[in-house]
């Protein structure tokens, strides 16, 4: 009985989501077909999806998608390898934190896009530039989240560990780090979006190979339907990656108040 109810409610929510999506798509289609929006810049949704399905059959499309994802994964991966240990080092020592805080507060607000000329100068227009920008942008949220996570450890938990004579190394690996994992997970999710944004930005602005460059090419070629199709693809990739991280969080952080009962 309770199960049936839950299923029906689950179905209901699913139906609501799709009803919303469908409404927007139908309205957009009508707006374009009736000429409310100029078709030259805003083709009907059906045409966008026709172009999208056509692109799915093209090797260049998959190559570009792979290149964008390559920039994303390298950017996020390198940022994680640098930011998480750095956050751990800074988060476990007040002295180190004080020493580097000013540097961090200066570098963090720099918009990554401001580094585009530098990236071109140093790395040219290829993959390296894209990865460099993605790493720079993805580094900060992860560093800050890791740092907060390490600092937000419950003093009672640390006292408990000390009272039961856990060594300093054990206190860090068994108490501080597990407590910081939710913060790191949030940082990863934020940095993942940021890395994707910067990968596409680099492709658009510098012309690094990938979906961003293909979007530009579609514009130059006057293929508005393909332009939108590719924009939709970048959106779907962002949504997919985010869902992936959210699902991983539900598994790993099942003990955390934000995830309890979500299994």
């Amino acid at each position: 009985m309770a199960h049936a109810l839950r299923t029906r409610r689950g179905l209901g929510r699913w139906a609501q989501t799709w009803a919303g999506v469908a409404t927007v798509l139908v309205l957009a289609e009508l707006a374009s077909r009736t000429g409310l929006l100029p078709q030259r810049y805003f083709p009907p949704v059906t045409e966008m999806f026709t172009a999208l399905f056509a692109a799915l059959g093209e090797p260049w499309f998959w190559l570009a998608t792979g290149q964008t994802l390559q920039g994303w994964v390298l950017g996020l991966g390198i940022a994680a390898l640098l930011a998480v240990p750095a956050g751990m080092l800074l988060g476990t020592s007040v002295v180190r934190y004080r020493a580097f805080r000013a540097v961090i507060e200066f570098l963090r607000p720099i918009p990554s896009v401001a580094l585009v000329p530098l990236a071109i100068l140093v790395y040219g227009a290829g993959l390296e530039s894209k990865v460099f920008l993605a790493v720079f942008a993805a580094f900060w949220p992860l560093l800050i989240q890791t740092l907060y996570g390490m600092q937000d450890v419950d003093p009672v938990a640390v006292d408990t560990a000390r009272a039961f004579r856990l060594t300093r190394a054990e206190r860090i690996t068994r108490v501080v780090l597990p407590g910081a994992v939710p913060y790191v997970a949030t940082g990863l999710r934020i940095s993942s979006s940021v890395a994707l944004i910067l990968a596409v930005t680099a492709e658009l602005v510098i012309g690094s190979p990938g979906l961003g460059r293909e979007i530009n090419a579609a514009r130059v070629g006057g293929a508005a339907d393909l332009l939108y199709a590719l924009i939709i693809v970048t959106g779907l990739i962002g949504w997919g990656l985010n869902s992936m991280f959210a699902a991983a969080e539900r598994r790993v952080l099942h003990w955390h108040p934000s995830q309890r009962g979500a299994r």
Binding site: D159, T160, P178
Partner: peptide, 18 residues
């Protein structure tokens, strides 16, 4: 000291939720 066991007032914070 290793002979001492401690029970804290804040039990929920003294137990590791993970």
């Amino acid at each position: 000291p290793e002979q001492v066991g401690f029970v804290f007032q804040e039990y929920s914070r003294s137990l590791m939720p993970w």
